[in-house]
């Protein structure tokens, strides 16, 4: 029963990250979301310090940074990429400070490891329920606004010129990604959560249209999540690392397949 809960959670979290990854890469928001991933990690450290569930603090910090980084960049005139790297470094420093300050013996392996490299012990029924609700909301927003998002993913400037307030929609996507990261943090861990955004998306880009890209990326995210969990059970290794290694193996396989397919089509 526990394994089933963990597997379901890892499939959902992996899929959400897979979807977000494609959207983020197309919008060139990778650096920004990298910073948000570390904001989530910092949030988790705060949770550890205050002894409340890191999931909620992680989500709060992730959403907060998604919301402030754009206006902050506009206000200071610092390019958002540069600002993102400054924030990333700051969040990391703060994460270490809060872990150090958290009650109990410093670097208590279980607790700290939980947020840094992920753990399945933290996967409870409540967590799964939260995950299901968020996944549902995510899918709902995406389906409802799909035509808008599609146009922005194709050519943001042109959509803006045609009267679409693209900044609003991009914020929304950034926040959704922040949420996906926060919920995955528990399983994959703060060090590796970003890989789960990147690797499945890289596979996704071999598909020929945007919907398939997103579906393929979600599928590979979900598969890596569940296969990684099983591997970590069998081999007794950290779950986050197993998930990411699985994703990499799939990525290599997909790349080879795409390469062969291309070779067959092109004649030099």
């Amino acid at each position: 029963m526990f394994l089933l809960t963990v597997l379901s959670a890892s499939i959902i979290a992996g899929s959400l990250c897979g979807i977000s990854g494609v959207l983020i890469a197309r919008l060139r928001l990778s650096t920004l979301v990298f910073a948000i991933a570390h904001a989530a990690l910092f949030g988790a450290a705060i949770g550890l310090f205050l002894n409340i569930d890191p999931l909620y603090t992680a989500m709060m910090l992730a959403i907060l940074s998604s919301v402030i980084i754009g206006p902050l960049s506009d206000a200071t005139g610092v390019p958002s990429d540069t600002l993102a790297m400054v924030m990333f470094s700051t969040y990391n420093a703060l994460t270490f400070i809060f872990i150090f300050l958290s009650p109990g013996p410093t670097l208590a392996a279980e607790k700290v490891g939980g947020i840094l490299w992920g753990s399945i012990l933290a996967v409870t029924r409540t967590y799964l329920a939260v995950l299901v609700i968020l996944a549902y909301l995510y899918a709902l927003v995406l389906a409802l606004l799909w035509n808008r998002f599609q146009s922005i993913l194709f050519d943001r400037r042109l959509a803006e010129a045609e009267g679409v307030n693209t900044r609003l929609y991009v914020y929304l996507l950034t926040i959704l990604s922040g949420v996906a990261i926060s919920v995955s943090l528990k399983i994959v861990g703060g060090f590796l959560v970003f890989s789960l955004l990147y690797i499945p998306a890289a596979c996704g880009f071999t598909a020929e249209n945007i919907k398939r890209m997103i579906l393929l990326s979600a599928l590979i995210g979900g598969t890596s999540g569940s296969a990684g969990v099983i591997l970590s059970f069998i081999l007794n290794l950290p779950v986050g690392a197993c998930i990411v290694v699985t994703a990499t193996v799939i990525f290599i396989a997909v790349s080879i397949y795409a390469y062969i397919k291309r070779k067959q089509k092109t004649v030099f």
Partner: peptide
Amino acid sequence: DEPFKVREIVAMGLASKRALGRL
């Protein structure tokens, strides 16, 4: 490698004027 198709792209122009981009 741009994945979007001609008809979809033209439709986006009209979708920008419609609520939720629905055509």
